[in-house]
């Protein structure tokens, strides 16, 4: 049995970088996610959409290891990561941002991004206390990588600013930078454009596309702005009340009657309300 599933895992490694197979999660009597599957091809942008409470963030939490699914499995490049700790999953190459920005508010932009590289660094307690030598050399090497990301996201002039003092849109961008700093293979973005104005949304969409195309990072995106989702996604997955109800290209999904129903309700449902 183990052998079979292992071989199957190798089989879909060629095209799908991240695979979620029938995961479910319940909190007491509430079903957050029920038997949802997701296939994320390498180098693609996959969007997860759905009404509020559809289970989008719960699904992301299961991928990043923050929730353990009650059933089903999550695999990155054919390797089962379902039961791994969030910190180990980060080290394997999955980074994410949060719906409500979760930056380290007491630290500068630079330190937030350096923390993004935590998993790629090695310095232990002793070499940190001594610092001069190993730890310093490592800090400098990783500082260069971080500066490159600061430049990419046009945050150079803010590097010494504490993140608590930054405007909302900038904080979202810093959070993207922190996720990028870990050199992820797959980037999970939870409403990166939530609460932004049109200009900021366009900037963020541009950055997401650049991250995907120039840096070759696979992106899984939760977003409510349908215009952005339909423009930049290769594939759209629709959730409603914890279940997957549709999957396909943006065009296919938009024409799917089930999706229209989930968003707008049926004639009967409308009459009841």
């Amino acid at each position: 049995m183990v052998g079979v599933s292992a071989r199957r895992a190798v089989a879909y490694e060629t095209d799908n970088q991240l695979v979620v197979e029938g995961v479910s999660k319940r909190f007491g009597g509430v079903v957050a996610v029920e038997d949802v599957s997701l296939e994320v091809p390498r180098g693609s942008i996959v969007s997860i959409i759905g009404p509020n409470g559809a289970g989008k963030t719960s699904l992301l939490n299961m991928i990043s290891g923050f929730y353990k699914p009650d059933s089903g499995r999550v695999a990155l490049e054919g390797k089962d990561i379902t039961q791994k700790k969030p910190s180990d999953i980060a080290a394997l190459g999955i980074a994410r941002t949060f719906q409500n920005i979760a930056l380290f508010s007491g630290l500068t932009v630079l330190d937030n991004l350096m923390l993004g590289r935590h998993v790629r660094m090695k310095a232990g307690v002793l070499s940190s206390v001594i610092y001069w030598g190993l730890a310093q050399k490592e800090d400098i090497a990783h500082r260069e990588a971080v500066e490159e990301i600061l430049e990419f996201l046009k945050l150079q002039d803010l590097r010494r600013q504490p993140t608590a003092a930054l405007a909302y849109g900038l904080r979202k961008r810093v959070e993207l930078g922190r996720a990028l700093a870990s050199q992820p293979k797959v980037l999970l973005l939870d409403e990166p454009m939530g609460g932004m104005n049109q200009d900021e949304k366009e900037d963020m969409a541009r950055y997401v596309l650049d991250v995907n195309q120039e840096r070759g990072v696979t992106v899984v995106l939760i977003e409510h702005d349908m215009g952005v989702v339909m423009d930049i996604s290769d594939k759209v997955v629709v959730l409603d009340r914890g279940r997957g109800i549709a999957v396909g290209t943006p065009d296919e999904v938009q024409r799917n009657p089930k999706v229209v129903e989930a968003y707008l309700g049926t004639a009967k449902g409308g009459a009841k309300a």
């Binding site: 990043s64 923050f66 700790k85 969030p86 910190s87 180990d88 980060a90 080290a91 980074a95 994410r96 949060f98 979760a102 930056l103 380290f104 508010s105 007491g106 630290l107 330190d111 923390l115 993004g116 935590h118 998993v119 922190r178 996720a179 870990s182």
Partner: peptide
């Protein structure tokens, strides 16, 4: 400091 400021985010970026 990451553990102090945001323990959930700290875990997600790879800090045990």
């Amino acid at each position: 400091v990451a553990v102090r400021d945001q323990d959930i985010a700290a875990e997600i970026i790879g800090i045990d």
